[in-house]
Computed example of a mutant assay.
Amino acid sequence: MSGFIIGLTGGVAAGKTEVTRRFQALGVHVADADVTARRVVEPGQPALSRIVARFGPGVLLPDGTLDRRKLRELVFADADARRALEAITHPAIRAALEAECRTAPGPYAIAAVPLLTEAGGRAAYPWVDRILLVDTPVELQRERLMRRDGVSRELAERMIAAQAPREARMAIADDVIVNDGHPDHLETAVAALDAKYRALAACHPL
């Protein structure tokens, strides 16, 4: 059971997946917010019932699962609708992430939350003991997006601009891994933080 929780975040194409993969290779449990977001709206989950009550049965597919495309269309052009959806899903996601981390094996666990800064940072995630930022230079971030997603330079820049600025993420971070493309550096940084977190967890009250 993990009594010590790390919130891992970072901008788009910063390399969060690569960092979490390396922590997992060291035996650390990682709870993924994106996976959890899909899980909390599965049939039978309270969040799905609340979504249907708010947006109507038209957001369901014939098999009773959420029609994500339809829901996106509804909230994309309507800020009030988007906020209503977030008010339903975000608390459910946070609660599920915390529960998964608390029951995870090992001395500490990681909650991977890409939009942790945008979601309210520490105020929204008071159960996170430390925040780890995976950071990368904006130029490299843009290049990775263009290569990974096959998008234009302009679209890549808009995707980066749509997220919280780098300075805002830095402001809430306790620890930073600079993922500038050097695998050896990443390996060393993750190993050092793993040792640090295990030591902190050993002194942390359950």
Rank of each mutant, 00 (worst) to 15 (best):
A192N: 07
P183E: 11
R39V: 06
G3F: 08
A77I: 00
F55T: 04
G11H: 00
L193P: 03
V128E: 03
D180V: 08
S49E: 15
A195F: 07
A199Y: 07
G27P: 10
A192V: 11
T36D: 00
I88K: 06
R130L: 05
A37L: 03
A111H: 03
R147E: 15
A47Y: 06
T89M: 13
E73R: 14
R102Q: 13
R38Y: 07
L66Y: 04
G44Y: 04
V41R: 00
I51T: 03
R144P: 03
Y125M: 06
Y125V: 00
T17R: 10
R153H: 12
V30S: 02
L155N: 05
M170T: 04
Y125T: 00
G58E: 12
D63G: 05
Q24P: 02
D80T: 15
E139G: 12
R82I: 09
A47H: 07
R69A: 15
P105I: 00
D135Q: 13
G121R: 02
A123D: 15
A87R: 13
D180M: 09
C101H: 01
P165A: 05
M1A: 10
E139A: 15
R153V: 10
D63C: 04
L26I: 09
M159P: 08
D149K: 11
A192I: 07
S2V: 06
V138D: 06
R148M: 06
T17G: 14
I88G: 05
G150M: 11
G11S: 13
V12G: 02
A156M: 09
V190P: 02
G27D: 10
N179F: 05
A77L: 07
C101V: 06
M1D: 02
E42T: 09
Y108F: 14
G106C: 11
E42W: 02
A189C: 10
M146S: 05
A189R: 09
V59F: 04
A124W: 01
H90V: 04
Q45A: 14
R153T: 12
P43F: 02
F76K: 05
L8N: 00
L71H: 04
D78C: 09
K16I: 03
G106T: 06
L71E: 01
